[in-house]
Amino acid sequence: MPPEIAETREVWLPIATFLLGFFVRTFTLSKADRELNERSKFALSKELADSQNEAYQSLMKALTEYASQTAPPTLQDFFAISGPCQNYLYQQKLTADAIMSDRVDRQSRDATFVPKLVETAVVIIPKTYAKLKEIAAKHGLPFADEFDRANYQSIFDVVEKFGGRETAVRLSGK
């Protein structure tokens, strides 16, 4: 074998093997890897569902406590409901972020999260902002938070991508 061919082989063979290995690993996850991947997606889904549920329970508790009082609310009373409202929406946003970056298993996404995120986008977000504003105005409390769609962009992205055509029509307000 002429020396230059031997040299070429010496240089290119390891490079080619390296590249081949790289692409094989990148594009074909082994069965074990796939299972591990699914398991971690499922674990994250459960974690998200638990935090969502916690945020929901705290919100219900805060609103019930607030509504059961009769005295005019103080600023502190108001924060005691606006905080849990924001936290509930924040948890929904975290879930939407995870869905958009494909870190949630498909079954949980379709059966659990998407229907809830649709409700959040269509009903809860507009209603929460309108009511908090109304309550603040009624009692002369400061509420500077204007609704900014950009804060919840991933929620709207999930609804648009997985929520179906009907929902997109509802959201566009037709």
Binding site: A67, Q69, V122, K127, K131, I135
Partner: peptide, 17 residues
């Protein structure tokens, strides 16, 4: 019952305080 319905009606109740 959906979460949206529950939250919605409690927000209404809070608005009535």
């Amino acid at each position: 019952a959906s979460e949206a319905d529950d939250i919605s009606s409690l927000l209404d109740a809070a608005g009535n305080r």
